[in-house]
Simulated scan of single mutants.
Amino acid sequence: MRLATVRHEGADRVGVVLDDGVHLFDAGTTMLDLVRGGLPAALGVGAAVAAATPSVPLDLVRLRAPIEPPTIRDFVAFEEHVEGMRAGVGSGPAPAWYEAPTFYFTNPYAVVATEDDVFVPPGSQQLDYELEVGVVVGETGHDLAPQAAHEAIFGYTIMNDWSARDLQRREMAVNLGPAKGKDSATTLGPWIVTADEFEDRHDAEGFLRLHLSVRVNEVEIGRDLLSNIGWPLSELVAYASVGTWVRPGDVLGSGTCGNGGCLAELWGRRGERVPPPLQPGDVVEMTVEGIGTIRNRVVEGLPKPVIAPARPRPRDRD
C-alpha cells in the first residue's frame, strides 16, 4: 500500500494512493498516527478508506513529505560509496567500517517533499545529492534481534540526503560532524510503501534487490542496486536499537548507494569535480524500484553569514 501526505484544499491530509488518485483519510489523521497504530491496523484502515472514499486526482493535490519523523538516523552502509569517498586519499574503507554499521543523526526539522525547492546552504559552493532508501520504523524496540527488527519495519520511502561538501569538510576536520554540511534539507517521498509490498522480494540473506537511479537535468548520473548494501536493512534497524530505543516514525537512511549515488564519490574516483557541484536551476530526480520518484529543483540560497572566529583565551584558572 502507498500511503501519502498531501496538501488538499488548504490542509494536509493522509491518503492511500491508487493508480493516479488518492483516497483521503478523515481530517486530523496524520501519518505518524497511522505508523504508531502499527502496520496491520494501517493496512486495514487504509483498505477501508480506499473502498469507501472517492479518488482525488494526484494532479489536484500537492505531495508533502510523507511523515514528520521524530528522529532521522543516516547510515554509511555501501562499500562502493565509501571507496569512492576515500579514493582521493588512496585507501578503501577503514577496517572499522566492516565491523558494524555506522550512522549519524540528522535534522528532522529540515525534511522537505518531492517538488519542493531546495536552497543552496548559506556559504556553500559544493552542494551534492545523496541517493538513499529510507526505512520507517513501525514498532517500539530496544536491543532488537534482526528478525524482530525486520518485523518492526513499517515501510520504505526515498531519501535524498543533501550535502554541502565544503561545509562538511571543514566540520569533520575538527573530528566532529557532519553538522551544517547536512543541516539544510533532506527529501523524503514521494510516499511510504508499506513493508508487506516487499516481503516476497527479500533474498535468502534478507537483501532487497531494487534498482536505484539518479538524474540531474534529465541525465542519468548514478545507478545501483539496493542489494549492494553491506547489511540488510533489518540489521541497520537492529543496530540502531542497541542499548537504546527505536520508536514508530523514526526514519533510518540506508546510506548513499555506489556508482554515482552522489557526486563526491565520482569526484574522489576521478580526481576532479566532474560532474560539477549542483547549481541553482539544476533538477535532481531519484527513482527507486517499487517506491517511485522524487524530484527537487535547486535554488539560490542566502549569502554566506559573517561568523566571528574563536577568541583566544588566557586559560586562567583563578
Results as ranks from 00 to 15, higher is better:
Val49Leu: 07
Gly88Pro: 07
Ile67Lys: 02
Val274Phe: 13
Gly84Glu: 15
Val112Met: 06
Val111Ile: 11
Arg62Cys: 03
Pro305Val: 08
Thr29Lys: 03
Gly134Ala: 13
Arg223Tyr: 12
Gln168His: 09
Tyr98Ala: 07
Val56Gln: 04
Glu9Phe: 12
Ala308Gln: 15
Val82Ala: 11
Arg269Thr: 00
Gly28His: 06
Trp97Cys: 05
Met31Leu: 09
Asp196Leu: 03
Ala110Pro: 14
Glu99Cys: 12
Val45Ile: 09
Phe207Tyr: 09
Pro275Arg: 02
Arg313Asn: 14
Leu167Glu: 06
Glu289Ser: 10
Pro54Met: 08
Ile153Arg: 00
Thr102Phe: 11
Trp191Glu: 03
Arg165Tyr: 01
Ala52Trp: 09
Asn175Thr: 07
Pro277Val: 09
Asp161Asn: 00
Pro248Leu: 04
Ile291Tyr: 01
Val45Ser: 11
Gly90Ile: 07
Trp162Gly: 10
Leu34Met: 11
Leu32Phe: 09
Gly260His: 05
Thr53Asp: 02
Leu60Cys: 12
Thr256Asp: 00
Ile153Asp: 02
Glu132Leu: 04
Ser241Ala: 05
Gly28Val: 07
Asn228Leu: 11
Gly138Arg: 04
Glu130Phe: 12
Gly189Ile: 04
Thr106Leu: 13
Ala11His: 14
Thr244Ala: 12
Ala11Gly: 06
Ser124Glu: 03
Glu205Val: 11
Tyr156Ala: 10
Glu289Leu: 05
